[in-house]
Design a protein around this nucleic acid. Sequence first.
DNA 1: CATGAATGAGGATTCATTCAT
DNA 2: TATGAATGAATCCTCATTCAT
Lengths: 221, 221, 221, 221
Amino acid sequence: MAPKTAKAVKKPAAKTARVNDPERTRANIIGVATHEFSEHGLSGARIDEIADRTHTSKRMIYYYFGSKEGLYRTVLEECYRRIRAIEHDVDLEALPPLEALAELVRFTFDYQTNNEDFIRLVMVENIHRGENMAALPNIAAVNSNAIQRLKTLCARGVKEGVMRKDLDPIDLHMSISALCFFNVSNRHTFSTIFKVDMRSPKALTHRKDTVTEMILRYVTP
Amino acid sequence: MAPKTAKAVKKPAAKTARVNDPERTRANIIGVATHEFSEHGLSGARIDEIADRTHTSKRMIYYYFGSKEGLYRTVLEECYRRIRAIEHDVDLEALPPLEALAELVRFTFDYQTNNEDFIRLVMVENIHRGENMAALPNIAAVNSNAIQRLKTLCARGVKEGVMRKDLDPIDLHMSISALCFFNVSNRHTFSTIFKVDMRSPKALTHRKDTVTEMILRYVTP
Amino acid sequence: MAPKTAKAVKKPAAKTARVNDPERTRANIIGVATHEFSEHGLSGARIDEIADRTHTSKRMIYYYFGSKEGLYRTVLEECYRRIRAIEHDVDLEALPPLEALAELVRFTFDYQTNNEDFIRLVMVENIHRGENMAALPNIAAVNSNAIQRLKTLCARGVKEGVMRKDLDPIDLHMSISALCFFNVSNRHTFSTIFKVDMRSPKALTHRKDTVTEMILRYVTP
Amino acid sequence: MAPKTAKAVKKPAAKTARVNDPERTRANIIGVATHEFSEHGLSGARIDEIADRTHTSKRMIYYYFGSKEGLYRTVLEECYRRIRAIEHDVDLEALPPLEALAELVRFTFDYQTNNEDFIRLVMVENIHRGENMAALPNIAAVNSNAIQRLKTLCARGVKEGVMRKDLDPIDLHMSISALCFFNVSNRHTFSTIFKVDMRSPKALTHRKDTVTEMILRYVTP
DNA sequence: CATGAATGAGGATTCATTCAT
DNA sequence: TATGAATGAATCCTCATTCAT
């Protein structure tokens, strides 16, 4: 909801303007839009607002993305692209299976905690029943790696006798995601109802440990 | 809503509650609004649309709820009230601790699966950072029971030696919620990315078992 | 809405406002829109402009007509409805066949001359390939009368031996329309090219006589 | 035009006139614009659309024609220039007066039928009250020939006793134009209302005969 | 209580046109 | 010449809300 009162201060300057650098312009818009959509949702976000926070004008949004929905989809696409790129950072091969899994859980927890915009965007997209995401090309590619790596890890764990045989990588991934995601996504309602802190470093560390332990216990034979 | 054309035929039908029954009118509006807000979010929902699906007119919405936000808050309140009422249905005392916990997990899983509107409303409210919920009176009351019952259960489990001593009821509740919630909330994006079915009875049963086992393994000493 | 430059003078008053008289409001809008669409075409007309010349606001246009196109269609419909109503004015039965026909031609000529808005609207609609008109219900009803009356008249003329037998009412109607229509529709380009006056009473009378004679000569055995 | 999405693939194909050939570029633009203006009118035509269908870019349109209106005027001018050039094709002198007239009518009918773009452009210009055309130089020259030739023809007809003495060439030209023009210009509305075909070869031939006969009967003493 | 009419303030989108290279 | 990027100024349309009866 926009403030009807005067408090919204316009910052008329700072616009580099007329920089003929399409990539930069696009990136700038996407950056701002990512935050706006994550903050207010697809219908709640305002093109005017996005434009204002941009180095360019509202017109450029339409020039590059065609429509509000087009911009939203691009934002979504970029977000998933980023995840895919980042997931490689954990070197699961270098550690013993259980430690690797623990590391993966902790990494996931941290990543999600530190990327609230992404989490919220996924929430928004689920409110829209994933219809925008479904339209994206290459979206399936996002999974390939995550699941494949988990599969390999499980196989290793089974071979070394430290993991049970009946593990389903997708199911396991879902559990990890669920536990990590919730801490960010439902932070507000949960902490309001249960009067608990879910954001302090201490609370996060504690929760991360709980989640990690829960996953480890589950995979143990 | 407006007459789209001169001869837009009004469907005066089906509107049964013409008899002045305030409670019924209110309930009818809330019912419709619950679905609309859950479906499209706070900014995405349309007062016109809600009014149209109602037995009354748009004017009544303002008469009873003052504003769109007022209606939204009432809807939220009702939703939480309903949960609280329903939670009593599981008689945890009648079963051995672990079985009681398993039953609670399954009940939670089923309830969330069968109440998508509620799940989505919670998502929506979290997108709005819980600010509407925070304004509700009695919201804390929702927790009292859930946590208290879990606490009692854990105490019983510890006494009987089937649960570990260091369990935190809130933390446990959060884990159960996270695992159950995700299956409904992130259904669309997850199933799109991983090409899996998350809605068939079979998939639901399997996932429910996984979640239950995960929780049980976690509480075991 | 508002012109940024100074030249457009606003007439802020005169708006009867808040008259809860839908029929009047509708009629007022249609009246203004008829002229605007006739003047500038569908794409050339401006909703803002129409609203400004109305006793109501732009919002009401959308309230009643849904869209610019919806308004245009209604305008078109009204125009054709009016014609149909007016055509009864010539009592063809009361005169001898040839005189009746002459009277019909003169009436048509005068009507078209005096209803430039209508002529231009028909031009506009033809530019749009009649797609909006085709969507109108009852549009076929417009013809029924015109052709039927001409058919009866021809039959009478044939029986009395003053008209040839091979006349096709539709073809005849087309000729009359063409000759009368052109004088209004192509007035500007024709008079510019040939440096002739096509609007003075004298010119109109002369042209009307020519057209009448042309039709009469054509139907004569 | 703008890139609708990030990966909007540009079709650099088919654009042959890369070789700097001003005349060819101009002609290409005019050709495309003629169709666009004829199709959508002055306000309905889109510069972007025109540029897209061109072998060049939008920039060139402004380079060569200054503005949308400038382009429109050029298009108009070209159209009239073409007519004037073509009218010489009928050799009226070679035939007996009435046959020459019949030939002229048929030629006019065919030309208009086969040049819908031109007809529509004239309609568009009349919607704009001929103001763009009036600004064109040499526009009067268009008439000189047509009328002069008709005048000569009539004189010949009168001398040979096959035409009445009181014929006004301009008036006659107007009648011919009206009857031929209408068949193209009002095709859509007329055929929709009267459920008749106006485009089949058979219908065209029949109508052409009617028109020719009507004109011939009119000029006969 | 109830209803249809009415509306100000925004909100998304489009257009002709110009600029930097 | 030629081209893609950029833009101010509309232009159509929507929304929550209020008024008269």
